[in-house]
Simulated assay, not measured.
Amino acid sequence: MSDPYSQPNREWWAQRWIDVLESFGWVRRLARARTYAREGNVLNIDFKGSKVAARVQGTAPEPYKVSLSLDPFDDDQWSYVIESMAERAIFSAKLLAGEMPQNIEEVFTANGLSLFPFTKFDIHSKCSCPDPANPCKHIGAVYYLLGDRFSEDPFVLFQLRGRTKEQIIEALRQIRSAGSEVNGTTAQDDSLASQSTADQPNVSAPLAVDRFWHYTEQLESSLVVIAPPPSSETVLDVLGSIPLKVDSNAEAAFTQTDSQALTDHLKTIYQIVSQQAILAAMKAGDAT
């Protein structure tokens, strides 16, 4: 029987949680805990604010009560973190789509924080069983089941640090909306998460690279800043594989290979546009 806690296809944030816990040196205890988690001994996991309450069936007739929590961030700390998230549109788009951005930890470390437990002393846990060891196998089983919860909803990890999904999304939207009003633009990043396949562009339409970006006014040379983007991710990474429409009556149906070929072609276009933008910026700088 395969071990669900050793699967390579687990979401990276859920696997990171497990890796962090196992790095604390609780190998023997966590081995027993994995068996408990795998066999369904964790009867329930409930959240009371940022704290976790669970019941785990052990050898005794009555289930043991387990509590677990991390140190929550205070209001100022969360304010800095959310502002940092809002500055990077890719983060907002992925979080609104229910996915944890790959380099989300950078936002926390940049603000002197750690999203995942940094040491074993960052985890506060208690069990009603007579075993004096911490974590006992009941607490350890809850650790593993929390990893499953993170896979289902990455915002659960944020909740352990003191902010719910609703609070984070609302704060992100307020910041992005305020920034859009100041710049006189419309915030469209939030719509990426809910875009339907019906709204996808016709892949057979010509790709007008020469008109990809057009601006008729002279740029102020002092405002030209050449710098690498904060993330290598693009909207293509947010949307994932392109769902090409398959016509059953067509002589040749689109395949996954066709979808990947189109994605690669669009990525090449992004690179060309990026290079042209850098050259234009350099020429503008030389002209001053």
Rank of each mutant, 00 (worst) to 15 (best):
P132A: 00
E105Q: 11
D131V: 10
S128E: 08
S125L: 14
I123G: 09
H138T: 02
D122S: 07
A141C: 09
P101D: 13
E106V: 09
G140Q: 08
P117F: 04
V107H: 12
P130D: 07
A141Q: 11
H138V: 00
I139P: 02
I123T: 12
D122H: 08
P132Y: 01
S114A: 12
I123D: 10
E105W: 05
K120W: 05
I104Y: 06
P135V: 04
C129G: 09
H138E: 05
K120H: 15
F118Y: 14
N134Q: 06
I139G: 05
V142N: 00
C136Q: 07
N134M: 08
T119M: 12
P130I: 12
P101F: 08
S128D: 11
A133F: 09
E105K: 10
E106H: 12
V142T: 04
F121G: 13
H138N: 11
F108I: 11
G112L: 08
F108Y: 10
F116C: 03
A133T: 06
C127P: 01
P117E: 08
F108D: 10
L115R: 05
C136P: 01
A133E: 12
N103P: 00
S128I: 07
G112N: 13
G140T: 05
C127F: 04
L115T: 08
F108S: 12
D122C: 08
F116E: 02
I139A: 08
H124K: 14
L113F: 11
E105D: 11
A110K: 15
H124Y: 14
P132V: 01
A133M: 11
K137F: 00
P135C: 07
I123R: 00
C129S: 10
D122V: 04
V142E: 00
C136R: 01
E105A: 10
S114I: 06
F116T: 00
G112Y: 13
N111E: 12
S128V: 05
I104P: 00
H138Q: 06
P135E: 02
P101K: 12
P135Q: 06
Q102N: 13
I139Y: 01
